[in-house]
């Protein structure tokens, strides 16, 4: 066990996958910023109230799931990488639900027609969701790769994973 690559692999036996875990936590951070940003919307109808409520509920589920993934992937559990990919796809899908619909819609508030989500707010919201999704995808990739490398290394050593 003298070459650098083997030592690097062997290190994983005792160190956490902090990069993948950190990326999952970063995706939570971007999601929280998105979550705060949507409150600036001009919600003037029950339809957007419901959409925002649903977004808040999904957000709670996302926060919990992403945090669990962060903990799981930290310990090289490959299954959590697949959950992270699913969560990332979910973040991308959300773009087309609330921000896109709200950006295209107008509502009447105090007899004035206003856009539910202004362009600047829309751009920010989309950016946060994309960043959150990208973090999850990269984290999942790193987690998956390292988990497989560790598994192969342990098998080569004859140690149970």
């Amino acid at each position: 066990m003298n070459d650098e690559k083997t030592v690097r692999l062997d290190r994983m036996r005792y160190t956490k996958n902090s990069m993948a875990s950190g990326l999952a936590l970063l995706s939570i951070l971007f999601d929280v910023i998105f979550f705060i940003s949507i409150y600036e919307s001009n919600v003037g109808s029950w339809y957007y109230n419901i959409l925002m409520g649903a977004s808040i509920l999904y957000n709670l589920i996302f926060l919990l799931a992403a945090f669990l993934c962060s903990e799981g992937i930290k310990n090289y559990k490959i299954g959590y990488a697949y959950v992270m990919i699913a969560l990332g796809l979910g973040q991308l899908a959300r773009i087309f639900i609330y921000p896109v619909k709200a950006h295209a819609a107008t509502v009447t508030i105090q007899e004035q027609a206003v856009t539910v989500m202004e362009t600047a707010q829309f751009t920010r919201c989309v950016a946060y969701l994309v960043l959150s999704a990208v973090c999850l995808f990269i984290g999942a990739y790193v987690g998956m790769t390292r988990s497989r490398q560790l598994k192969a290394h342990l098998e080569a050593l004859g140690v149970a994973a």
């Binding site: 650098e4 030592v7 690097r8 062997d10 290190r11 005792y14 160190t15």
Partner: peptide, 25 residues
């Protein structure tokens, strides 16, 4: 963990992680 405790002082010194690993083992 025990590994992290033993590696801590070397990590603070920013030694090469592979070197740290060999020394800890």
């Amino acid at each position: 963990t025990i590994y992290e405790n033993m590696a801590f002082s070397l990590t603070l010194r920013k030694e090469n992680p592979n070197v740290i690993h060999k020394k800890v083992l």
